[in-house]
């Protein structure tokens, strides 16, 4: 059996970032199915509606209507969603922000890179890690990475 197609969600209010993310993802070898959301509210509504559980959610922190942190908290407190790995995708490099998201259940923290190549590498690494955590008997409780 070859690799499955990964279901990936991204919530980011910045159109350019969404576009860049999509472009970077499409340049990678891993086959993915990316759904984009303009804010946290849209994302949460989708999560509640859909039946297919995504393999990974990318969350920007600073978003209108519902920010990334609120989404994270909601996901972690929902029985159906709590197992989904969440990667925070933010500009903030504040240690406080980073620690806070991890404590609240984020698995991966990505500082938005300022270079397209870096962005691709970052997404690649996240997907790899996520893959390993799905396939290699790694303890998901300790699924914590900062990229």
């Amino acid at each position: 059996m070859s690799l499955k197609i990964l279901n990936i969600l991204l919530a980011d209010d910045d159109e350019d970032d969404r576009w860049l993310f999509q472009k970077a993802l499409s340049d990678l070898k891993i086959k993915t199915n990316l759904s984009l959301f303009k804010n946290g509210k849209e994302l949460m509504e989708h999560l509640i509606r859909t039946e297919t559980t995504p393999h990974l959610i990318f969350l920007d922190l600073n978003m209108p209507l519902k920010n990334g942190m609120e989404c994270l908290t909601e996901i972690r407190s929902s029985c159906n969603l709590k197992a989904i790995p969440v990667a925070i995708y933010s500009t903030s490099s504040s240690e406080k922000d980073i620690e806070n998201t991890f404590v609240n259940g984020a698995n991966i923290y990505i500082n938005k890179p300022s270079n397209f190549a870096d962005l691709k590498n970052a997404i690649d690494k996240v997907l790899q890690l996520n893959w390993q955590y799905h396939t290699s008997n790694l303890n998901k409780d300790n699924f914590l990475f900062r990229i």
Binding site: G105, N142, L144, F145, R146, I147
Partner: peptide, 22 residues
């Protein structure tokens, strides 16, 4: 290098997570 976190930061986070019941 692997996690992007120092062992002590990791430990701190895990500890806090347990405190917050997550």
């Amino acid at each position: 290098k692997t996690t992007g976190l120092t062992p002590s930061t990791f430990q701190k986070i895990i500890k806090k997570r347990k405190e917050f019941n997550i």
